[in-house]
Design a protein around this nucleic acid. Structure first.
Lengths: 200, 200
DNA sequence: ATACCAACTGGTAGTTACTACCACATTGAG
DNA sequence: CTCAATGTGGTAGTAACTACCAGTTGGTAT
């Protein structure tokens, strides 16, 4: 890794760090891009080169590749699909748990302002598409089939539900444990799907 | 309904109509709020009173109350939950189908620009919350329970899947028929949920 | 070491979404 | 008819974001 790449990576990390601190201190809307640029010691032009929009700074940790699709691809071929997805869910949390409090704070900030909150789903849509591809490859079903699309979404929802529950539990329980509880509940209780009403 | 209310309603409709036509003609990003105000024959201040942000003009049809939660509340108490949800799904489409082509065009515009596309999820989150409440009332489970939250989301996903499929079929099939097909497929194939991997 | 190209930086000027505040017009009620 | 409530619209300002341009720095080939 050359000097140039190193500098770019450092600048990028610096921007995110400075920005999140400012957001925590003065709120997302109360912080201007100029302030971020100034504190990060870059010009505003440079700032916009690293992050084309303000909300993407806050969403940075969520734009990195998540390990769900990779897990689906790397599990043994004879493992049942529900277990594969269970591993994928747990992999996400192993990945997230290392800087728990900061991610937690960032997620709270995201939910508080409308621009990043809205954009989050847009960002997660990319993960969803990749998960769909991975599931389709594994099961042999077409990517746009009902089962593939629904399976991918249900998996993402399970992750979201677990993360939500964890966030509102304020660190009293560990993430993987919460995920296990939720998956167990889904299995034992079952989830009703909308069904075609009898025509009579 | 007094004269004042009539005028307000007319102005509102006029704004949406003018704006969507401009969006279709020049694109969402290529249309300014000033142009919309001018063509709709209102001041920009007034425009912002009706719609606090540009994307909400385009999202207007999706901010109206959707009938899903209402359907859940109004079905007979002894009807099985999956059938109730099936009715709710079909109710949405009966409601949507009356101005099919325009809604279709609007949805395409939404998907093409990042701001409205992102904001759409934020808007639909309100419907989701109300559906959660309706399901919780009916089943007696707490609103924040895993089953209620997952059921509500799965229902919303079924609607989304059907609408997506319909949009890409370009009007060759009717919406309720597509919805029935999807629900039937979900029932017969089943959807795998992530499951806790064996600890061994 | 020197020359050179590519990538990175940052400043200036401009557009546009959106807000705050203002005076003015219109509606509807007593 | 009067008056208060409600709606209208203009002006001035902020801040996100873009286009353009000149200058700097890092890597590379000679």
């Amino acid at each position: 890794m050359g000097l140039r790449e190193t500098k770019v990576a450092r600048t990028r990390a610096q921007i995110v760090d400075v920005a999140v601190n400012l957001f925590l201190e003065k709120g997302y809307d109360g912080t201007t891009m100029e302030e971020i640029a100034e504190q990060a010691e870059v010009g505003t032009t440079t700032l916009y080169r690293y992050f084309p929009s303000k909300d993407l700074i806050l969403l940075d940790p969520f734009t990195r590749e998540d390990p769900v699709a990779d897990t689906v691809r790397s599990r043994p071929a004879d493992e049942p699909i529900d277990i594969v997805l269970g591993h994928a869910v747990l992999a996400t949390f192993a990945y997230l748990e290392h800087d728990q409090p900061r991610i937690n704070a960032i997620r709270t900030l995201i939910d508080e302002s409308s621009a990043p909150r809205a954009r989050l789903w847009d960002v997660l849509a990319r993960n969803l598409a990749e998960l769909e591809r991975a599931i389709a490859e594994r099961t042999g079903a077409p990517v746009d089939s009902v089962s593939v699309r629904m399976t991918a979404r249900v998996t993402q929802l399970t992750i979201e539900l677990a993360a939500d529950t964890w966030r509102s539990s304020e660190g009293t329980r560990r993430l993987p444990e919460i995920a296990r509880t939720i998956m167990a509940a889904l299995k034992s209780d079952g989830v009703p799907f909308p069904a075609v009403p009898p025509s009579a």
